[in-house]
Structures are given as C-alpha cells and as structure tokens.
C-alpha cells in the first residue's frame, strides 16, 4: 500500500509544480519587464526624443511588448511535432473536421486564457512599478487591437508552416528554436527596428517579422502617423494572405504525405 500512496504523493507534487511553473514563468516576465524599463530609463537619461520617440513612449512600448508576447504563445507547432512523432495525427485526421481549424481555435482559447492569467497581473505590476502603459489615443488603441489580431494570425500561420515540416522530417529538433529566436530578435520585440540603420529597416520591411511586434506596438505608442499605421495593417493583411496561401499548398501535400510511425 505504501508504494501506491507514494505514487499519489509524486503525482500531487508534480501537479503542484505546474502551478509552480506558472508562477516562475510569470516571474521571468516580470524580471524582463523591470530590467528593460531600467535600461530605457538609463538610455534616455539625458535625452528627450530619439528617432522620434520619447522615454514615456518607449517604456510603454517595452511593457506592451511583454504583454502581447503572452498571447503569441501557441501550441500548434510543438503539438504537431509531438502528434506526428507519436502517430496521434492519424486519429486527428479521422475526425470529421478540419484539424487545423481545431488547432487554431485551441490556440485562440490559449490566447484568451493568457489575457486573464498573465496579461492582467503583468499589467498591474507594470502600472505599479513602471508606469501605466496608456495608448496614444482611443483611435490608436482600436488600430492596435486590429493590428495585434493580424499579428496573431501571422505568428500562428508561421507556427503552422514550421510545424508542418515535421510531416516530412518527422522531427524538426531545435530548428523551431531558430525561428523563435529570429522572431524575438528581428521583430522589434526587444528593441524596435527604427533604432537600426536605415538600410536594415528597408530590408526588414520586406520580411514578415516586424509586422508581428513592431507594427501593433508602434501604433499603440503613437510612433506611426495614421497613414503609416493603416498602410502597415494592409501589409499585415498581405502577409496573412501569403502565409495562408502557403499553408493551403503545404496542407494538401502534407496530408498526402502522412507517414504514421506507431500510434
């Protein structure tokens, strides 16, 4: 009997650690939030505006960057990997629904969950210790929300495209990490691309990355004029369509290519 109770104890400890994992992951985001705010404060110590942005705007930018990163957390990429590896994908395909739509709404659920579980506490902490990240105007807020929705679609579609590579190679390994890192560094999530030399900004404007973080955040803090903001959202829409086209092509080929190992 003792052995069985021991198993119960281990299970309970493991489930407690899930809560523990959650608290620590929030803690990491708080550390990033606060450390970045001190960095910007020091950088702006003797300056009012740099590249047309002042300290207050930059602090709001960095706070909002951490906040929206919470909803850009999606299962689909790793989910596809593990389901393909274990062969569970076969069961999903048998279901009389579009499996990718299923994954999508699963991730929409995750995002909504993140708003309550992560964004609200982080917003509270940011407001208490840094500043209340207010939008430039109600119109900017509205455009920001539209733009963030497009960002979510772009991120999700990139995740799906990457996840689908697993249909061919079975295990992508850490290549997914490379993608994550590129997005983190080149999307303006830490440092906006407008601080980079002009030629780099030109190059980046032809890549999808800055349309994930920098576009909505730049709108929120009022860096972009209305015209620039709307134009940026159009480009976001264009990227959504391009990536969606890529998804349609890959999906049809992938499902023909399903190789089930085990399951």
């Amino acid at each position: 009997m003792k052995a069985y109770f021991y198993m119960v104890k281990i299970r309970m400890q493991l489930s407690l650690t899930y809560r523990f994992e959650f608290i620590t992951s929030i803690f990491v985001q708080i550390v990033i939030l606060i450390a970045n705010s001190f960095l910007w404060r020091v950088l702006y110590a003797n300056k009012t505006t740099v590249s047309g942005v002042n300290m207050k705007q930059m602090l709001t930018y960095s706070i909002m960057s951490v906040l929206i990163s919470c909803i850009f957390y999606y299962d689909v990429e790793n989910g596809l990997r593990s389901r393909i590896r274990r062969g569970d994908i076969a069961i999903d395909i048998l279901k009389p629904i579009n499996i990718f739509a299923m994954y999508f709404f699963n991730d929409v659920g995750n995002a909504l969950n993140a708003v309550i579980q992560r964004i609200l506490p982080l917003l509270l902490i940011a407001a208490l210790f840094i500043q209340l990240p207010l939008p430039a105007s109600p119109t900017h807020l509205l455009l920001f929300m539209v733009s963030t929705a497009f960002s979510f679609l772009i991120m999700w579609l990139m995740g799906v495209l990457f996840g689908m590579i697993n249909f061919w190679v079975i295990n992508l390994g850490p290549l997914g990490n490379i993608k994550e890192m590129i997005i983190r560094l080149l999307s303006g999530s830490i440092i906006p691309v407008w601080f980079f030399p002009v030629w780099i900004q030109k190059v980046f404007s032809f890549l999808p990355f800055i349309y994930t973080y920098q576009q909505p955040l730049g709108i929120y803090v009022g860096k972009f004029t209305m015209g620039e903001a709307l134009f940026g959202i159009e480009i976001q829409l264009m990227w959504v369509l391009i990536l969606y086209g890529g998804y349609r092509i890959m999906k049809n080929r992938a499902l023909k290519n399903v190789l089930i190992q085990g399951g």
């Binding site: 950088l43 740099v50 590249s51 390994g173 850490p174 290549l175 990490n177 490379i178 890192m181 590129i182 560094l185 080149l186 830490i190 440092i191 601080f195 980079f196 030399p197 780099i200």
Partner: peptide, 23 residues
C-alpha cells in the same frame, strides 16, 4: 541547428547593442 542558432543569438545580440549605442 545549434551551430547556427547559438552564434546567431550572440552576434545579433551584440549587433542590437551596437544599434542602441549608436543611437
């Protein structure tokens, strides 16, 4: 993939620092 991703992380990290300090 580590051989690609790790050096990139450091070099891009240093490069963003440079862009910041240039500004």
């Amino acid at each position: 993939s580590w051989i690609i991703s790790n050096p990139m992380q450091f070099l891009v990290g240093a490069w963003t620092l440079k862009a910041l300090i240039d500004q």
